[in-house]
């Protein structure tokens, strides 16, 4: 991918959907895809719109993405309280090979990992507590 972020999206005519409609594996929620790339995206600066998510995911995902040193900016918003949509904006430094897509994926994977650790540590702590009581 070009570093300057010049893509076919430059004319901003259309939204880009990451998933092809009709794919068997599409996650469709009542007819809408889980994730959509909003208008005006370049390789290093993308706004994603995620369906049926809120602050539960948004705030901590934002945090994990921001921890990546290749990320210049990451923020999220819930544009309207009556819509179950969550927008997340990611900009990565253009002199790095990390695209906004990479940064998002990395953030998601890191958070899954952190979840695993918490789950494990909780089990350990609970067993330890039970042992200390017995």
């Amino acid at each position: 991918m070009s570093v300057n972020g010049d893509t076919s999206m430059a004319d901003g005519e259309h939204e880009t959907e990451v998933m092809e409609p009709g794919d068997e594996e599409d996650i469709l929620l009542g007819g809408t895809p889980k994730l959509v790339v909003l208008r005006g995206a370049t390789t290093h600066a993308v706004s994603f719109q995620i369906e049926k998510e809120d602050h539960t995911l948004g705030n901590s995902l934002r945090y994990f993405i921001n921890k990546n040193p290749d990320v210049e900016f990451c923020g999220y918003t819930i544009p309207h309280p009556s819509e179950t949509k969550m927008n997340i904006r990611i900009q990565t430094w253009e002199d790095t090979g990390t695209t906004a897509f990479d940064a998002l994926r990395k953030g998601l994977e890191d958070m899954i990992e952190a979840c695993d650790v918490v789950s494990e540590k909780f089990t350990e702590a609970r067993d330890e507590f039970e042992k200390s009581k017995a």
Partner: peptide, 28 residues
């Protein structure tokens, strides 16, 4: 924790598997 992980996994799968770039289909 596992519900949270499922949410994350869903977004990953929505993101697609490979280097897709920005030339996917046109969404509404």
């Amino acid at each position: 924790v596992s519900v949270l992980q499922t949410k994350l996994a869903e977004v990953i799968s929505g993101l697609g598997s490979s280097d897709h770039g920005l030339n996917g289909g046109v969404s509404p």
